[in-house]
Amino acid sequence: MNYIFYFLIVISIIVGAINGKLQEVTNAVMDGAELSVKVAFSLIGIMAFWLGIMRIAQKSGIIDWIAKVIKPITKVLFNEIPPESDAVGDIAMNFTANAFGLSNAATPFGLKAMEELQNVNKDKTSASNSMCLLLGMNTAGFQLIPTTVLAVLVGIGYKNPTEIIAPTLLVTTIAFVSAIILSKIFQRIWKPRIEEVKNEQSD
């Protein structure tokens, strides 16, 4: 992340200077900073709402039920988390909400799952295998119906907008499955560097 952050900013400044757009780049700092707070604040209400609903779902046993149904799958994929962890249910809800295109609802579930995964994580600053997998599943953006895209297509008078659904579903499935396979491959190669962490702490 350190290098990504560095290169994002350095490349922007260099390319901005070449294109004579340095002023625009500087303005983007202010606009971006303002926008990020707006994004976070716009999340508060909807997050609070869904976390509240989720709490009811949890207390009434719905989450347990959903988790039980898709447990065979999550058990194989997330083989490192203890089966009694709440993370299983949250991951299930996160996936279900994403699949139905409710990304506003999916984020609170995903973040809750992240917290549960962090609770069983050995090194609190480094992402665990399960966290990386959950991330990969979310960045692939698996969705049954691309509602926003359909809305735009209807808006321009597209005759048969639903013809877009099948190809989109195929593509998103390919991306989703590759994200899972890639995570499983990389977790073998890219082991967490525990020794390094110990050194940093003793410094």
Binding site: M1, E115, K124, T125, M131, C132, I189, W190
Partner: peptide, 8 residues
């Protein structure tokens, strides 16, 4: 969750 090392 305050993760700083993103690994892969």
């Amino acid at each position: 969750v305050g993760i700083k090392k993103l690994r892969y």
